[in-house]
Amino acid sequence: MSLQVGFLDMPMRTRLKPTTLLRSNYLIAASAGIDSYWLPDHLNNLVPRAIATPKYFGAARLIPDVDAIFEPWTMLGRISAWNRLRGLRLGVAVTDAGRRNPAVTAQAAATLHLLTRGRAILGIGVGEREGNEPYGVDWTRPVARFEEALATIRALWDSRGALISRDSEFFPLHDAMFALPPHRGKWPQIWVASHGPRMLRATGRYADAWFPVGLMPPNDYGRRLELVRAAASDAGRDPMSIIPAVALTMITGRSRDDVEEAIDSEIARSMALCIPATEWARHGAVHPLGEDFSGLQDVLPQTMDEPTVLSHASKVPLSLLREIFLQGTPGEIVEQVAVWRDHGLRYPVLLNFSMLRTSLRKGMASNVPLLSVLRGLKRL
């Protein structure tokens, strides 16, 4: 069975027109024959702004502020106008279930689904601390909020425009109404980003696809996939109907030397702060934010100054980056994804981290091997 392949872009404001860089990346991805194009749901970036400067990050000459990020549903509505002939599926990877009221999320996804003639995907997860807590959103029970958000979205979509009331600790409905119709009787697929046991069980019960961030070894992915399928079976669902997807970060280049130069940069090393402490420990290192630090969900990069980020980055074992991130020339990356495929993956969605380096020229040049990677994966 051949893989389906997606591309995850980053909608940051640049010195160009708002859609110029996104349109370029979209066309590169579409020309490779991929199946879907995605944007993330972030108010700010996971790249520490303290070192997102020309000294460490060549693309800062093009991107003056890495925390200036466009809203994804709005931008995908614009992109849907480019997408009519190519017909890629469009999705958010992933919508924040806590920061956004689920009725608004249900509306946004249904709107995009109608605009794209049935090609929208609702990626959804608990979100991260950095996009919730600083903005006054309660972060004490994110999984419980996620479960209720997902149940609320399903209830609104299934209401067929009738008034609906529903008890909920977080999102109660009182004579609410949702009148937008599905496209030809079908709502957007729901792809759930989940990692821990409770979220994996929720994925098995409710999701159309399992869509974690690939900050884990491939064999761990296979083990968690079995937990998702077991939960689906327990809920009376066909466990094989759930699409095994994953968001994978990638650093590529024209040569192995280019790749090693990027991996060893401070800006790329800083992204290892998003990796859980348990993964650091497997490589004989202690996460600088604590032995119990959960990584991506709890990191607050906007609060770190330059010396702190550089100190933390210096402690990252390169073996960890080489294991967790796809890295190498196009042929090497295709071989690495093949290992994930052997552990059950059927739908990789790639995020290109190759711009995380000191050289803007080499970062921009990585679009050529990126195209080779995407084409190679479609042949895998």
Rank of each mutant, 00 (worst) to 15 (best):
G185R: 01
Q107R: 07
G204S: 05
A209K: 05
D220P: 13
R160P: 13
G91A: 04
I124M: 09
E147L: 11
R154P: 12
A193W: 07
L215N: 11
G118R: 06
L88G: 01
W82Y: 08
I121W: 00
N219I: 13
R117S: 08
E128R: 02
I190L: 13
H113W: 03
Q107E: 11
G131Y: 03
A209P: 10
Q189M: 13
F170S: 11
K186R: 15
G204H: 05
R117C: 04
L88N: 01
E148H: 00
G87K: 05
P218H: 05
R78K: 00
A151R: 14
R160G: 12
R166C: 09
A162H: 14
A81N: 03
H174G: 08
F170I: 12
L150E: 02
N132R: 09
L114A: 14
G98Q: 12
R84P: 01
F178K: 01
G161Q: 08
W157M: 12
G161I: 06
H183G: 03
G118F: 12
W139S: 00
V92N: 06
R117P: 00
R89S: 02
A103I: 01
R89H: 02
T116W: 02
F170L: 04
P212F: 07
A106Q: 06
N83T: 07
R100M: 12
S194Q: 09
G222Y: 08
P142W: 10
V104W: 15
P142D: 02
S165N: 13
I121P: 10
Q107M: 14
P212L: 08
A176I: 11
A162E: 15
D96G: 10
T105N: 03
S194V: 00
R184D: 15
N101H: 15
F170E: 09
D167Q: 15
I190H: 05
P188M: 04
E128Y: 07
P218N: 03
A149M: 03
R86I: 14
Y221W: 07
F146R: 02
G125P: 13
R129I: 04
G125T: 07
P181H: 06
A120P: 10
L112V: 03
I79K: 00
A179I: 14
D158A: 13
E148N: 01
R201A: 11
A176W: 14
L200R: 11
A103W: 06
A162S: 13
L112R: 02
A209T: 13
E169A: 14
D158I: 09
R89T: 05
D208G: 08
A202P: 00
E147D: 10
L112K: 03
A202I: 08
P172D: 07
N83W: 00
I190G: 03
Y135H: 08
R86M: 05
G204C: 06
L200Q: 03
R129N: 03
R205F: 03
G87F: 06
N219K: 11
F170T: 14
S168Q: 02
P197D: 09
W82V: 05
S168P: 12
T140G: 02
F170D: 13
D96A: 06
A179V: 15
